[in-house]
Amino acid sequence: MKAMFAALMLMMSTLGFAQSEIYTGYFSSKAVGGYDTVAYFTQGKPVKGSSDYKTEFKGANWYFASQANLDLFKQDPDKYAPQYGGYCAWAVSAKNDFAKGDPEHWSIVDGKLYLNYNQNIKDKWSQDIPGHIAQGDKNWPTLIAK
């Protein structure tokens, strides 16, 4: 059942739906589900952020676990923000489409953070990371322009 739901979510077309450049979900304004994007780089793991340390960037609210992480993000948000706006890296590259990125299924490649929909999808993405990044980088500008 989970596999069918995942496949359905990945196959949903972007036609008729305006997509934000940053994935926040339908009923939220939290980027990366409220996780601290700096912590992936400094602690090597997903860490929930706090409303005590938040900022706005590209129309979304970004949460951090500490003032130090918030300050690092504010100095260079593009360094810490996930690629493809936090949407699933595999969906952007392989399907040229949007799907939610899950903060628990992540990778840092060449100093950039990538999220994937779930572990199964991350495993698919991991089979050809350089190829998926090249294709995702090609697809992303046209996806967000729709």
Results as ranks from 00 to 15, higher is better:
residue 79 K to I: 03
residue 113 L to T: 05
residue 129 I to D: 04
residue 140 W to D: 01
residue 57 F to K: 14
residue 77 P to N: 05
residue 32 V to P: 03
residue 79 K to D: 05
residue 95 K to F: 06
residue 132 H to P: 04
residue 66 S to A: 03
residue 103 P to C: 06
residue 79 K to M: 05
residue 94 A to C: 11
residue 82 P to Q: 03
residue 43 Q to N: 12
residue 45 K to P: 10
residue 18 A to F: 14
residue 44 G to V: 01
residue 121 I to V: 10
residue 121 I to G: 00
residue 140 W to T: 01
residue 92 V to Q: 01
residue 116 N to E: 03
residue 78 D to K: 11
residue 106 W to Y: 09
residue 74 K to N: 14
residue 54 K to R: 14
residue 123 D to S: 14
residue 124 K to S: 12
residue 42 T to H: 09
residue 118 N to P: 12
residue 15 L to S: 14
residue 10 L to A: 02
residue 87 Y to D: 02
residue 131 G to T: 11
residue 102 D to S: 11
residue 65 A to E: 11
residue 31 A to Y: 04
residue 50 S to E: 04
residue 55 T to M: 06
residue 126 S to A: 14
residue 54 K to V: 14
residue 141 P to F: 08
residue 79 K to N: 05
residue 138 K to W: 11
residue 120 N to H: 15
residue 130 P to D: 10
residue 18 A to E: 13
residue 110 D to Q: 13
residue 114 Y to R: 00
residue 111 G to E: 05
residue 103 P to V: 02
residue 111 G to Q: 06
residue 79 K to F: 04
residue 93 S to V: 07
residue 88 C to H: 00
residue 129 I to C: 06
residue 84 Y to L: 00
residue 13 S to L: 09
residue 25 G to I: 06
residue 104 E to L: 15
residue 123 D to T: 14
residue 134 A to N: 11
residue 101 G to L: 01
